[in-house]
Structure formats: structure tokens, C-alpha cells
Design a protein around this nucleic acid. Structure first.
Lengths: 142, 142
DNA sequence: CTGTGTGCAAACTCTTTGCATAAGT
DNA sequence: ACTTATGCAAAGAGTTTGCACACAG
């Protein structure tokens, strides 16, 4: 158990290091919150709160910095949902999302089932970076 | 020709009226810019600039107000793309978009070809409001 | 007339930036 | 030591709001 924890910590450390970033307290702590427990979608604000709650004093600016650095390194993906907030997704593979209107809540559509067919050719000189599908949900009105 | 213009103006007027809104100068002018020439995706800022350029002095706040009123009335749809800006789409039917990274440019994917299969069931008590597909494009790196 | 809409400026939210201090290698 | 990261507070972008004045019905 102690063994496992140590191994994980090392893995996180490596992940940060491999991204070309110094494994500072803050970055490692944030990376741990982000990557230690499976796929997550978080806003900067949310991650910041979690870090504080976990006893890691980190500033919001640093959270933003780190999120963008991780994104540039390919460890995160930015999630396009309407509204002010930017969400960062720890699952960088092609997959899609439910978005609950009014609650600003996002969760994964289990991969597999959904697929898009007949994607058109991108215009000359452009290539497809990725495809995002957002299924917007609302409370069923009886 | 003059005939056509007059008919169109009346149609726009009706459209605003049917939305339960008074056909004020500003609203009619904005509606005309929005609906007179086919499907468009605009940000508030862009519409504001167009209005000013067209010699209709309207404030940005009023543009925002009108866009939201039209949206509530079902004449527009809000488009979810990453980034700060909110886009409003005059095409309210289910259709999808290309988004050009870096340029903040949005355009329609011609309907027909694309389709999504195997959409999962929404969770209990929820229903699908709509499905947005955004195909993010980037310049092809040689 | 009466009520709604408009315009302005100020407020707000989310995000980024500049710069002095702190920490990593 | 040398360089990069952090934290703070201030600045920025986009959007919303409060309130006096103007306009539509």
C-alpha cells in the first residue's frame, strides 16, 4: 500500500518531468489531483478549490498556468462547452460529453457506442484537429 | 425589387412581433442583419459592428439583449465553441460546425453527410436538448 | 399616457499578465 | 548560482446590470 502510493507519486513526477516541466510542489500536487483518479473534467476554479482543500496552498494563477502547460504537453484537452468556464479534460482520446444545462455539469459519454459517420473533407490546407460532440441535456419536463 | 424589399421588411417585422417583442428600430434592424441573408454565425461584437456600419446606431448592450431575446424565442441558437466569445447561430435546426483554431472562425458543415449513430440514452429524468458536433480544424502542417 | 426598450457606465466573471520573491537543479 | 516557477494584485476580455431617458402602442 505504502509501496503503491510511492510508485504512483513517482509516476506523476515522471509525467510532469516528461512534459518538460520542473516537478515543483504545486505542479506535482495538481497533476496528482488531476491524474491519480481516472478521467476528470475540471475548471481551473474547481481544481484550485480541491488543491486548497487538500492542503496544497497554490494560487489560482498557478493553477491556470499549470493547466495550460499540461494542455500544451498533451496531458489535458480543453473542452468546448457553452458558457464562460473553460473545462479541462484528463481524457485526451477522442470521446464525447454530456452537458447538463443550468448546472454546468459535464460527464463522459461512455466510449464505444457513439460514432460519427460521413465526416466531410476539411477545406484545402486544413486538417481535422479533433471532433467534439456535446450532447446537451435538460431536465425532462413531465 | 422595391416590392421584394418591402415584403422582406414586413416578414422581419412579423418575426420580431411573433417572438413577443416590440418591433423597435433596433430590434428590427438587428433581425434584418441576422435573418435577411441566410444562415450566419455571429458574436455580439460582430453584429454590433455590422449594425454601426449599416448606419444603425445601437448599443452593445442592446445587441446582447436582442440576441438573448431572439434566442429565447427560438430564432437563434447559442453555439458552443471554446474560447471567450459566444456565437449565435441563425440556423436553429440540427446541424454542425467547423471551427478554425486560432482564427475564431466558424462555419457550417453542409447538412446531410454527417450523422451520429448510437447516441446513448440520457440518464433518468433527462432528455436530449440537442447535439452539437464541432470539428476543430487547424492548418495542415506540411 | 403607460409600459417597455435603449444607452450608458459601472459591475461582474473568468482569465491573463507583470513583477518581486521563492524554489528547483 | 542560475533559471524557472509562484503568488499577488492589477489589467483585460466578454458579458450583464441598474437606472434615467426615449419611444411604441
Amino acid at each position: 500500500m505504502d509501496h503503491k502510493v510511492r510508485k504512483e507519486a513517482v509516476a506523476i513526477d515522471m509525467r510532469v518531468r516528461d512534459a518538460g516541466l520542473r516537478p515543483t510542489r504545486q505542479r506535482v500536487a495538481l497533476a496528482e489531483l488531476l491524474f491519480a483518479k481516472g478521467d476528470r473534467h475540471l475548471s481551473a476554479e474547481e481544481l484550485h478549490e480541491e488543491a486548497i482543500a487538500a492542503g496544497v496552498p497554490v494560487s489560482l494563477a498557478t493553477v491556470y498556468n499549470s493547466l495550460h502547460q499540461f494542455t500544451d504537453a498533451g496531458l489535458l484537452r480543453i473542452l468546448a462547452v457553452e458558457g464562460a468556464r473553460t473545462y479541462f479534460d484528463t481524457n485526451t482520446s477522442d470521446h464525447h460529453h454530456f452537458f447538463v444545462e443550468g448546472e454546468n455539469r459535464v460527464f463522459d459519454i461512455e466510449t464505444g457506442p457513439v460514432s460519427v459517420t460521413n465526416l466531410p473533407e476539411p477545406p484545402e490546407g486544413m486538417e481535422i484537429a479533433n471532433v467534439d460532440i456535446v450532447v446537451r441535456l435538460r431536465p425532462k419536463r413531465s
